[in-house]
Design a binder for these strands. Structure first.
Length: 281
DNA sequence: CAATCAACCTGGGTGC
DNA sequence: TGCACCCAGGTTGATT
């Protein structure tokens, strides 16, 4: 589910409800995670009660709760994770309740996950620095020049795979990458180093627009994502290629193609996003 | 080195 | 009804 716009939406919605609040207790559902996570689980149960959440931030697709003892509770929702505060409904049966964080004012933050891939980790400042150094810059923080440099460095890697690589640029996932490439009219199959400066400029602009639109619409809800209040986002109504296989391209009316790149489903228009620049003529 | 693949999980869907 | 298999918006680590 969650890419940058979804995590950013959750961060903004949670901010006023959790920042400056003290944690009363935490609870892990017995089905949470594997043995590796179990070790961290004990730390979280032991160390969190009594600590204050001093801030909430986002690093790529990671959501980070700053705690009063200079530790950080780091959440990654992976594919199906949902983080919901004060749900007033019974969550869908297929999403298992994995974790709860109860605040001093009795608000409850719950993590639901259909699989159990989502991570809840307790980190020191050093751990967090290691994460932050592995995660590339936010698209919103990049100049055209920096973006182009990073794309060029990906050499023979297909541009779609480069954009999905969180170390090159962070926050873009499988939906927004297809939307951005379509908007910039660049084939997802193009080798990164063949992207011209002009193309890279339009690509960064397309990425920025696609992500900002996603944030404005509180995220894209296709099969799993809900915002922090338990409501679906609206951005799925405005997607231009993702999920539109066989339907006419909004620009040229040719059918949108569904294929596979790097093991991920990939939607594109083979006319508007030609793989070879020669086919433009 | 870069590209590919399997693994991590599990609910749901499909097809036999 | 059962079962084997495939799929998923992500990430990582091993293999070719």
């Amino acid at each position: 589910m969650p890419e940058l716009p979804e995590v950013e939406t959750i961060k903004r919605q949670l901010h006023d409800r959790v920042v400056s609040k003290r944690i009363k207790s935490v609870f892990f559902h017995p089905d949470f995670g594997n043995t590796l996570k179990f070790r961290n689980k004990k730390d979280i149960e032991n160390l969190l009660p009594g600590k204050e959440i001093t801030d909430i931030q986002r690093c790529g697709k990671y959501l980070i709760f700053n705690l009063s003892n200079s530790n950080y509770l780091v959440v990654h929702l992976k594919i199906y994770g949902r983080l919901v505060i004060n749900p007033r409904f019974t969550p869908p049966k297929d999403h298992v309740h994995r974790f709860s964080l109860i605040l001093e004012d009795e608000q409850t933050l719950r993590l639901f996950d259909k699989s159990s891939l989502a991570d809840v980790l307790l980190m020191s400042s050093q751990d967090l620095k290691n994460i932050q150094s592995r995660v590339g810059p936010d698209p919103f923080d990049l100049t055209q020049e920096e973006f182009h440099q990073r794309i060029m460095a990906a050499l023979q890697t297909k541009i779609k795979e480069a954009l999905l690589n969180q170390g090159i640029i962070s926050g873009i996932g499988n939906i927004y990458v297809d939307e951005s490439l379509y908007k910039a009219r660049i084939s997802p199959f193009r080798k990164s180093a063949t992207i011209s400066k002009d193309e890279s400029n339009s690509l960064l602009e397309a990425i920025t627009e696609a992500l900002e639109q996603g944030i404005r619409n509180r995220g894209t809800s296709i099969e799993s994502y809900y915002d922090a209040f338990g409501f679906p986002g609206e951005n799925q109504k405005y997607l231009k290629v993702y999920g539109r296989q066989g339907q006419p391209c909004f620009n040229c009316q040719n059918p949108i193609i569904l294929t596979e790149i790097g093991g991920r489903r990939t939607y594109y228009c083979s006319f508007c996003q030609p793989e070879s620049q020669l086919s433009l003529f």
